[in-house]
Design a protein around this nucleic acid. Sequence first.
DNA 1: CAAATATATTCACATATTCTAATATTTGAA
DNA 2: TTCAAATATTAGAATATGTGAATATATTTG
Lengths: 113, 113
Amino acid sequence: MNESTSRIELLKVVSHPARIAILDELSKGVKCVSDFQGFLEISQPNISQHLSALRLAGIIDFFIDGRLRCYFLKNPFILDLLEILKKQYAGELPGPECCPVTKKGTYPGERRR
Amino acid sequence: MNESTSRIELLKVVSHPARIAILDELSKGVKCVSDFQGFLEISQPNISQHLSALRLAGIIDFFIDGRLRCYFLKNPFILDLLEILKKQYAGELPGPECCPVTKKGTYPGERRR
DNA sequence: CAAATATATTCACATATTCTAATATTTGAA
DNA sequence: TTCAAATATTAGAATATGTGAATATATTTG
């Protein structure tokens, strides 16, 4: 698996509201499982499952303090991802010329006949 | 559905190698379906299916030139996403203090007893 | 108009993902 | 030692997703 494929694999793993919420929290610092229970409205086993998936993907890791598992962010790509997820955009990209009613326009490339 | 949830929904839709390849190509300009056939090793119907999914999600749109459907990028978030997908990172994030062998460390927050 | 080209749609199947429920494991406290 | 707390694991059901095959549609060309 090349670099770009594995990056897309990461995307897939984090494309879930609960996982993004977990990662966003981890971006602020080390958290243990019960910290997540405070604001995620899902069951404890489910939280563990998400954490497990994120860890398998190499996105997070943990250390142990007594009976607490303290999770932390490991992958720098995630910070950039979280940042653009929060970014505001001013409307759509400027589209190419075409009639807004019929949607007709002109293909800019070479036409194969 | 709020802003952040729908952004995650977008992530989910694009978390696929063929879709990212399509979007990357569209980031260079308008393309028609047969342009994608040139470099994607998947069937024409499958390409149409991916394009359809991307369009449903509001990520791309098209205009028509004769029998060509000319697709273009509509959502600005995607450009930022493509950019970080290509970015190089220097190793992992600096982790918190913990023993590398036993994985033991200290939870930084308040301990509930 | 008939044929060819460009592209879309539909269906059915295989696979993957996610959640719930039940239970297990580990550790600190009493 | 026994109990409670913190967390993980497993299995199974429900659902979603991706793909191939077949076919449909629209437009241009002859």
